[in-house]
Design a protein around this nucleic acid. Structure first.
Lengths: 226, 226
DNA sequence: TGGCTTGTGTGACTTAATCACAGACAAACG
DNA sequence: CGTTTGTCTGTGATTAAGTCACACAAGCCA
């Protein structure tokens, strides 16, 4: 139950479906959910486990990923504010075990919902239903995008995309280790190191320990959409 | 509109959600849908196109796949009897363009539903809603499985899995060209040819033109789950 | 200062993908 | 019947990626 009106206001602001729903739903919603805080780098779901709750993220970010036998990882998608770990919802509804891992990348504030409510509300409230459905289907599109990436694109172009998209605005800097980048792209650390070295020799970036400085965003972007 | 009672019986038998729904829904359903037949190898959806209808497959099979720049393909999933091209549904609901290609592999009988009905019924009928949601979310799981395959597993083990899973029962035979197998697995024809040659030399299979005969299913299965 | 952890660099090797062909087989046709 | 045409498969050479083993460098902190 959430009573604090500043909290309910923030939540309402973050989730459109709440604004679209009627007052009675809003009341029941805040009566039955709870608010939690997670530290960064906290495991959230283990592959194969049953999910006990559906979490709607208010602030912070989580990463959903797969791990291969050799220990290599690949990121499937990220969950940001206003979104939800929809795999959880699909596990709840269909009774499947969770097919991946999830971990918080930043401290997370989230609203927790019971499986029973997830199902009941989707019978009662069109806005909630639409929210759920459009979340699953946009995840499906995202994951199909990942398939396309790893099946058809070369690592250097994917890495260039990664750098362009993940650079802090203005500073043009990415503060991640080669290992972290490799885990995101689904390749190995050595490959990332070698490709980065190559990009550095072509003067597109400059490598520092634990960080990468973009020197020529235009050329990097050109490489990234080959 | 479908009036023929043998047709409605077949459709009822194929789709659980119809049996679970009430009589009034069943009546409206058969009033507003139509039945179509497609030949084999018929393109169904083009990447980037808007979908005009949702198709529920009664018999036959379709393949949903991606094409890369080089012309290589990879299968995302197949749609069989009782299933539906759920990407279509998600495009209809969210207004996205279709992110892949779909083609019939066998002659297909399908029930066509208007986008408007798809949305309206999901507001009115819990069984229909559940059917849609569980379809999308199981596709999501399948596609995540594909990501895992291509990111982490080797081609020879994936090919072994393919052979074991696609052999005709009893005959232990796969009647497909190397190119078709490559398009399914998301690799190139040459690679498939070479791996098959290797499996033949290890006496696990025998290669014929346009077909593969399994000689040692046990060893093939052992290879496939490495 | 010296040990420890974490992050990076690199050579050698295997597996995959790409390119450029050459044959081999089957249906079609005069 | 032989020839042609299109489909299917085989193979070497080259490049890209992933794996393994290990060296070394930077920062931390006792």
């Amino acid at each position: 139950m959430i009573t604090d009106s500043s909290a309910t206001d923030r939540i309402m602001g973050q989730f459109d479906f709440l604004q679209q729903a009627d007052n009675s739903f809003q009341r029941r919603f805040f009566q039955s959910v709870s608010l939690i805080n997670l530290p960064a780098a906290q495991p959230i779901c283990q592959q194969g486990s049953q999910c006990s709750h559906l979490a709607l993220v208010l602030s912070g970010q989580a990463r959903v990923y797969k791990i291969g036998d050799n220990g290599r990882e690949i990121t499937l998608y990220r969950i940001g504010p206003g979104e939800s770990c929809i795999l959880t919802a699909s596990c709840i509804v269909n009774g499947h075990p969770f097919p991946a891992f999830a971990v918080s990348e930043e401290p997370i504030e989230a609203v927790l919902i019971n499986p029973a409510d997830v199902v009941r509300w989707s019978d009662e409230t069109p806005a909630w239903r639409k929210y759920l459905f459009s979340l699953v289907s946009s995840r499906l599109s995202e994951v199909i995008g990942i398939v396309e990436e790893i099946a058809f694109r070369r690592v250097d172009t994917r890495l260039a995309s990664f750098l362009v998209q993940n650079a802090e605005p203005a500073r043009e800097r990415i503060e991640q280790t080669h290992q972290a980048i490799a885990s995101d792209l689904g390749t190995s650390r050595e490959v990332v190191s070698r490709v980065l070295k190559d990009l550095e020799q072509r003067r597109l970036i400059q490598i520092q320990r634990g960080a990468i400085q973009i020197l020529d965003r235009a050329k990097l972007a050109a490489l990234s959409n080959q």
